[in-house]
Simulated assay, not measured.
Amino acid sequence: MYKGYIQIYTGNGKGKTTAALGLSLRAVCAGKKVFFGQFIKGMDYSELLADMYLPNFKLKQFGRNCFIKNNPIREDIDKAKIGLNICKKVLFSGEYDIVILDEINIAIYYNLLSVKEVIDVLKNKDKNTEVILTGRYAPKELIDIADLVTEMKEIKHYYKKGVKARKGIEN
């Protein structure tokens, strides 16, 4: 029988969302259905067009059209709560084989959501649904319940030389 595991991609290096998108591509090409929920993101990223090219792929954003610098506002919290409720329904439904909670760790880090809220959702997910949680600062409580944890570590990055995000590479 198939079991859906819990995976975490965390760390300060580039590639967490990219890895989750790569896994999504692989899954869709294998005939699986993917739901990709982006927390704290409301900006125009290239992956927003993925459902035009990939059958069985759905992406929804739960954030404002800006980065949270230090202090989230009420709207950030409301969007994260709405997002978690939508993802909860998706995770409980069994309709999707894979559900990605992109930047959920950052939503927890900024206190938009509590670790307990997220763990309660994960504990009650459909047993066959694979879940991937991304974002820096994965809390220990999530790491403890995960089946796979990958830490992306920055060694060198061209951002430090002033290179801006490039369409199709970083956004």
Score class of each variant (00 low, 15 high):
residue 163 V to Y: 11
residue 98 I to R: 00
residue 104 I to A: 12
residue 142 L to Q: 00
residue 55 P to I: 06
residue 109 Y to M: 13
residue 89 K to R: 15
residue 31 G to F: 06
residue 41 K to A: 08
residue 79 K to S: 12
residue 72 P to Q: 02
residue 48 L to H: 11
residue 21 L to I: 15
residue 20 A to H: 08
residue 61 Q to L: 01
residue 123 K to D: 12
residue 138 A to D: 05
residue 160 K to G: 14
residue 65 N to C: 11
residue 121 V to W: 06
residue 28 V to I: 13
residue 115 V to A: 13
residue 40 I to F: 09
residue 35 F to C: 08
residue 64 R to G: 08
residue 35 F to S: 07
residue 152 M to D: 15
residue 28 V to Q: 08
residue 168 G to Y: 04
residue 77 I to L: 11
residue 128 N to I: 01
residue 163 V to M: 15
residue 17 T to A: 03
residue 86 I to G: 03
residue 133 L to I: 11
residue 127 K to Y: 13
residue 44 D to H: 09
residue 12 N to Y: 09
residue 91 L to T: 00
residue 132 I to R: 05
residue 77 I to N: 10
residue 66 C to T: 12
residue 83 G to H: 08
residue 95 E to Y: 14
residue 168 G to S: 05
residue 129 T to V: 11
residue 33 K to N: 09
residue 27 A to V: 01
residue 23 L to E: 14
residue 105 N to S: 06
residue 104 I to H: 01
residue 116 K to C: 04
residue 156 K to H: 08
residue 75 E to S: 12
residue 153 K to D: 05
residue 147 D to T: 07
residue 58 K to V: 15
residue 126 D to C: 11
residue 33 K to D: 03
residue 100 I to G: 01
residue 8 I to D: 00
residue 130 E to T: 03
residue 28 V to P: 09
residue 46 S to W: 04
residue 66 C to V: 14
residue 171 N to K: 14
residue 78 D to A: 15
residue 48 L to E: 07
residue 3 K to E: 12
residue 58 K to R: 15
residue 49 L to T: 14
residue 20 A to V: 05
residue 64 R to C: 11
residue 83 G to S: 05
residue 34 V to K: 06
residue 165 A to V: 06
residue 3 K to V: 10
residue 140 K to D: 14
residue 60 K to T: 14
residue 159 Y to T: 06
residue 88 K to C: 12
residue 110 Y to R: 09
residue 86 I to R: 12
residue 59 L to P: 10
residue 53 Y to C: 13
residue 116 K to T: 13
residue 65 N to I: 05
residue 22 G to R: 07
